[in-house]
Amino acid sequence: MNHSQFLISGFLRPPFYNGVGRQINQLQRLTIKFCKSHGGSKGMRDFIENHLVNYAKENQSVVVYVKPRRHRSPVIVAEYLNGDRRWMSAQNRNHEEILKWLSLLSLQAGDTEPIRYRKNWHTDCPSIQGPWTPFTHKNPAFNNIAFPDKELGKQLNMPETATEKLLRLVQEQKNTKNE
């Protein structure tokens, strides 16, 4: 079996109970590196001209650094609050693609592999009522009974015997005659 074909499974774990008190954006820093002349950086240059100011305005909690460098491919580096650093090549990507990648990066909580959620919720206290035990719904009256007990031990779904059926039929006949 090829295990790499399957997503690793796990539980939803927001960092530091994020959102219980207030929501903190986990992306803290973004470095955009690009070349001013190479064709591979065309999309990145378009992005910087048209969208970057807008992006920075919308995500003021993210510090954006723009770093031109000669004849090197464009790169996005995202740094997160948990210390993760995610490097991404943006070679030959157009500005729309870059915007989409950036919006994905700003929503993530770190350099995390995608996981398959086993459940959409998670709790450290899975049982509120406590675990079931053999004593949970036991009738307290049973404490004073010495087993085996005839009354409690009898069969519950005993079918009608032939004798009982005959007796019942005779009784029914008698009843109809009397009427």
């Binding site: 903190i24 820093r29 003021q60 909690s61 650094y65």
Partner: peptide, 16 residues
């Protein structure tokens, strides 16, 4: 090289 302390401090306040 890519470090701007003022911007970082500003973003810190906004983040919280």
């Amino acid at each position: 090289i890519e470090w701007n302390y003022d911007a970082e401090i500003y973003a810190f306040g906004i983040r919280l």
